[in-house]
Design a protein around this nucleic acid. Structure first.
Length: 614
RNA sequence: GGUCUCGUAGCUCAGCUGGAUAGAGCAACUGCCUUCUAAGCAGUAGGUCUCAGGUUCGAAUCCUGUCGGGAUCACCA
């Protein structure tokens, strides 16, 4: 695949021959020519003007002549200002299509022998997955697929936050208010069931808090703090956590349960195991519907004590310092960060200590020199600190750490807040988008003579494509606003639009489009849309590499959209099965097939599947 | 307040390591189904790329600052 590179090579030789300047052919930028100008590809010659000591227009002219004479592909040229526009011959386009066809693994790199671990999803077990998780999961999954395409061996992992006060709240709530009912008996999806008891806990707690606020001790506190009556409401809002820890009965019970859990109380552990299993069952089905899976789960209950031994090593190395009260710290002020605690004065570990230990455990488990953490951008600082610590501890993988951060998802109605019930539930959202696809499909009637099962399979693909593409087309780093209406869109810049291009191609081949590309050449002048399609298809491997290098699936998503758009244009512009000559028909079918292959591969890397009809 | 991050059409977003007259979709309006699936195509309209400087032959893109949104600065996770 070095058609363009061969032109770049000739160009570099020309610069050397004519102006005695060494130019690396890889540095020569060749872009598709803009529609308003004549030509197929453009080289900007400004950069070579100064060293050559001649005006851009002059060297453009000279280099254009050189290329026509020395390149097998360049037919004609024209110069506009410092832009050298080249027109290439049919041999170029023919070889372009043919070489792509020759490569069964087009766009995919060979195995590079490197391993990378990708962490994503990372749910809490006290509530079901929501829209925020969906962005996380789709990003993580997509990056996984992209890195695999780039030749890495990828290990997909999630950290499950299965311990702590939150799950204890659900547990306590179920014990107190559940009456022994199981999810199956209640007929509720099991993770939602557990989540409901978390909500019940919060509601009961709020009631209790409210009562306390009006009680003597509540009023007493206001007096002590000198809070005016009109500020009481906002004061109590702020004070909630302290109330929970100091006065609340429910809070006390939940904390006791956590202590019992940590002490290994068999009854609590049994309850904990039972309720977490319910949650995992629920997650399992959500993951399945999202089309994702994991190679390895790390449970916080098993890792939350990790990292303590490391602190001793760090102390020896002088990376950490011990205070008089026995707490252990790291000083990062020399690189513009703060001092950070890594071990409490009572000798227990904190969040970041766990993460240090977990990173080491993962390296021991898999020997991965790269680790990617898919976590929202509110934790940017945490990961900056974590990576710096691991670097100072001279961990072998320290240079291969990457925080794949992404912006929060806002709703058009404001922020998602679980307590205010404004959370968009993952299962609900998927069901809704599939329902929308079903409505669109029955209106069109294309699937009418398929079986119910076949229809459902296709409709699911369409709905999920809409949802996934909607999320993944946006750069991860950007905060995104989620408009439910817009996410249900199936027209325009959407997943189904891209699927439609693929489906059209499949339909053509069903109508009898067999062809053979070998040993043919076409004489006809190519249509602009044919050239654009070939140019796009040709750039696919670069797009994959770019997406891999930047851990950014949105490059790929936008590429697929542009490719589909160009195909739809092509489809309207030319007749494919009804082409004038057999050669032309074969060439166009070749383009169609290649387009289908690239769309399918590219969308696969976004976790989106193609239906054969829709 | 310190640090990080985002700011492009009414809305949601592209715009690659600086390159020609800044692009899509949605929403509005106009056309196109006797021809390969109209979830499609073509067209009209919509912009001082927050603002101000700087570097450059050339800046939405790089640098400095400004204004605006967001995040973060726990012996919580």
């Amino acid at each position: 695949m070095n058609l363009l590179h061969s032109i770049a090579q000739s160009f570099a030789e020309g610069v050397f021959k004519l102006y005695n300047q060494e130019v690396d052919a890889h540095e020569v930028l060749i872009n598709p020519t803009k529609k308003e100008f004549v030509g197929d590809f453009t080289i900007v010659v400004f950069p070579y003007s100064k060293p050559a000591g001649k005006a851009p227009a002059v060297i453009g002219e000279e280099l254009g002549q050189h290329l026509v004479k020395n390149s097998n592909y360049v037919d004609r040229y024209n110069v506009v200002n410092g832009f050298l526009n080249l027109s290439v011959n049919n041999v170029f386009w023919w070889e372009c299509l043919n070489t792509m066809h020759q490569s069964p693994s087009y766009g995919l790199s060979e195995k590079n022998g490197h391993k990378v671990l990708v962490e994503f999803s990372s749910p809490n077990t006290n509530k079901p997955l929501h829209l925020g998780h969906i962005r996380n999961i789709l990003l993580g999954w997509s990056v996984t697929s992209i890195l695999e395409a780039c030749g890495y061996e990828v290990i997909k992992t999630q950290v499950i936050n299965d311990r702590g006060i939150a799950i204890c709240k659900s547990m306590l709530s179920w014990v107190k208010f559940g009456g022994g009912v199981t999810p199956a008996e209640a007929g509720i999806k099991s993770d939602h069931f557990v989540g409901n008891y978390y909500v019940i806990f919060e509601n009961k707690f709020q009631e209790e808090y409210k009562t306390w606020q009006e009680s003597e001790s509540g009023q007493q506190l206001l007096k002590e703090k000198g809070i005016e009556e009109e500020n009481a409401a906002s004061f109590f809002k702020e004070y909630k956590n302290q109330y929970f820890n100091l006065y609340s009965t429910l809070g006390k019970e939940a904390r006791e349960m956590l202590q019992q859990w940590e002490a290994g109380d068999p009854a609590v552990i049994e309850l904990w195991t039972k309720m977490n299993d319910w949650v995992y069952q629920g997650f399992e089905s959500t993951y399945k519907n999202l089309g994702v899976s994991f190679d390895k789960n790390y449970y916080e209950s098993e890792t939350y004590l990790l990292g303590k031994e490391t602190v001793a090593i760090g102390l020896e190395k002088g990376v950490f310092q011990k205070e008089d009260d026995n707490s252990v710290w790291i000083d990062l002020t020399d690189v513009g960060m703060d001092r950070k605690i890594v071990l409490r004065s009572d000798g227990t570990s904190v969040y970041i200590t766990q993460d240090i230990g977990t990173a080491m455990l993962r390296y021991k488990d898999f020997g991965t020199e790269k680790m990617i953490y898919t976590v929202a951008d509110e934790q940017d600082y945490h990961f900056k600190v974590l990576f710096e610590i691991l670097k100072r501890l001279k961990e072998p993988y320290a240079d291969g750490l990457y925080h794949l951060n992404y912006g929060m998802v806002d709703l058009t109605t404001g922020k998602m807040k679980s307590r205010e019930g404004t959370v968009v539930d993952a299962d609900d959202l998927m069901a809704e988008v599939i329902e929308e696809a079903a409505a669109g499909s029955s209106e069109r009637g294309e699937l009418a003579n398929l079986s119910k099962a076949e229809q459902d399979a296709i409709i699911t693909k369409i709905g999920m494509a809409a949802l996934k593409f909607f999320i993944l087309k946006v750069q991860p780093r950007k905060r995104m606003t989620f408009d439910p209406k817009e996410s249900l869109d199936m027209q325009g810049q959407t997943g189904p639009y891209i699927q439609n291009a693929y489906v059209r191609i499949q339909s053509i081949f069903r109508k009898g489009g067999s062809f053979s590309l070998l040993n043919q050449s076409i004489q006809e002048t190519l249509e602009p849309s044919e050239k654009s399609l070939l140019t796009l298809l040709y750039s696919f491997p670069d797009v994959v590499q770019e997406a891999g290098k930047t851990y950014d699936p949105s490059h790929l998503a936008n590429f697929c959209y542009v490719l589909a758009k160009e195909f739809h244009r092509f489809y309207h512009e030319v007749r494919i099965l009804g082409a004038a000559t057999e050669e032309e028909k074969a060439f166009r079918l070749g383009i169609c097939q290649m387009t289908a292959i690239v769309i399918e591969k590219g969308m696969k890397m976004l976790g989106i599947e193609m239906p054969d009809r829709m």
